[in-house]
Amino acid sequence: MYESMILRTIARLMLPLLLLLSLFMVVRGHHLPGGGFVGGLLAAAAIILQIVAFGPDYAREIVPINYLRLAAIGIGSATCWGLLALLQGEPFMAARWLDTAIPGIGKLGTPVMFDVGVYLTVIGVTTQLALVLAEEPTLYPLRRPPPRTEPVAPEA
């Protein structure tokens, strides 16, 4: 068992911070370094930190998401924002922007929403990979003891 008090304390503190930072990266990403991919990796790193510190069961418990579905939804939404222009008779992915900027976030448009789709996909895929590997019993030993069952009566 790898139970480290320091790692666990820090991991607990870092989860909200890293998730916020990842959102910041997505919003910032359209004109400056950052973006959906980097943000997604950050968020996934936040969850993977929980896996490392507490084990996969706890990580599933505190962020109860089906990550594969999240990835599928991410791809689907990213595609749909690109479809908007296609259905209006322009090439796929041609950008559509709102006229006015929203304070604190900036101008919103289909490229930003596409990035959000990428963000969700990256979180989903990366975390799912890590979780599935961590849930292998022989690969990663940090798991909760199995629920106690009634002792089996010895056969006569």
Partner: peptide, 22 residues
């Protein structure tokens, strides 16, 4: 511009997403 060329790519992709969900 033959924009319809995107459809044979997008239809399988979106269906793959839907089929994953169900």
């Amino acid at each position: 511009m033959a924009n319809h060329l995107f459809f044979p790519l997008l239809v399988p992709l979106v269906s793959a997403v839907l089929a994953t969900l169900v």
